[in-house]
Nucleic acid binder design. Structure first.
Lengths: 209, 209
DNA sequence: TCGAAAGGAACGACCGTTCGGTTGATTCGC
DNA sequence: GCGAATCAACCGAACGGTCGTTCCTTTCGA
């Protein structure tokens, strides 16, 4: 098995509440401290060291390319070139193109659904919970911008994309329910339709992209 | 030369202010009157007649498919199947995939730029001209929805897409100028940046999609 | 010495496009 | 009025190219 299947293919993803830096740190020369970020010498042998390609950084590269050119218009050669290695070497780390897309979409979705599981989103009056969710949603949108951007552009061509669309609808439905609860509790005006209000709400938030 | 090059390839496009019905009329049995809409017998020989495929209706089909699946994910086979003919027959009417995209984008852009040439958009106080443009922009957005939708999703992968992006920026720049004029004329509050206001304006209008 | 990392080359599938040929309605010469 | 010629419409088959993916070998650090 290749290294790809161990961190992208399966298993619980830690993107829920964990540290979500994931910036596209351009593989510059970093210190050798920290929790063993594996290094290797550059072939040029000039003494510079750079991070070995792991699934996480390659995913960041892929998402950047997907967002720039669109998923379908981005070839695996584009991705590997952006990563600085050949196409076949790229396949040593990732298991496939659609698997990259799935991992990216899962990261965005886990970030969003993680909000719903926070205490402040589950306890208290509906309106206050709603406010917390909107606030946190903006935060996730900011910290995970490329991944959420990709999620919002999904069309439903493949099975992976349809899965992402379904989960996205699921998230919107939760917010719809919460809006209805807030209305039932008399916390918001009663002359707005819950579904419409929820749609406008997420539309407004997502327009921040 | 094929029929495709005569109406898609070159020449002034009449989409500016002409009749813009272009609905995907499902090729039902229509009367034989009108300005010679060419007919042909169905191969089944059952006596039913249907409209022969012209560049206009095939463009509408293509845009529908492009919007549903995305330009890159839509194959020429998809388009021809949606049109009800084979791929090679489809090529008898259109000159290529990118040419279809260009024609669709030009239609959307001509609709938008046509607004700027209307008298009410060129004469009078800046704010009133601005209001007229916004009003008409919503109208064009509605009547040409699929084409404008396609335009708003352009990424810039090919030369055609970059041309469309450039013209779109050109349109936005015209509106920016008008906002600045309205500000200089003291018709709008002076504590908003013109560029930002213009961006928000088109963002709001385009969000109607 | 061993295994992870990287690369060259190729494979099968699909894509956009072209080619050659068939059909059937219209037009032209007589 | 009628056969021959014409022409748009249509189709099956194939071509060159690109894509995602795999195989096999080489390189290199530990």
């Amino acid at each position: 098995m290749t290294a790809a299947e161990s961190s992208l293919g399966s298993g619980p993803v830690s993107a829920g509440t964990g540290p979500l830096s994931a910036g596209t740190a351009p593989a510059g020369a970093t210190g050798s401290h920290g929790p063993a970020p594996r290094m290797r010498r550059t072939r040029a042998g000039d003494g510079t060291r750079r991070r070995v390609y792991d699934a996480e950084s390659l995913l960041a590269v892929a998402v950047t390319e997907f967002n720039a050119r669109g998923y379908d218009a981005t070839s695996m050669e584009d991705l590997s070139r952006a990563a600085g290695i050949t196409k076949s070497s790229f396949y040593h780390h990732v298991s496939g193109k659609e698997e990259l897309l799935r991992a990216a979409l899962r990261r965005a979705l886990d970030g969003l659904f993680g909000i719903l599981e926070e205490p402040a989103a589950r306890e208290g009056a509906p309106l206050q919970r709603l406010q917390h969710i909107v606030y946190r949603q903006v935060e996730v949108l900011t910290s995970e911008l490329p991944y959420v951007t990709l999620l919002l552009r999904v069309r439903g061509n493949t099975e992976t994309e349809r899965w992402a669309l379904a989960r996205r609808r699921e998230f919107d439905a939760s917010i719809s329910t919460l809006v209805a609860d807030a209305l039932a509790a008399g916390q918001i005006r009663s002359d707005v339709e819950p579904a419409l209000a929820a749609r406008l709400l997420s539309g407004t938030v997502n327009s921040l992209i």
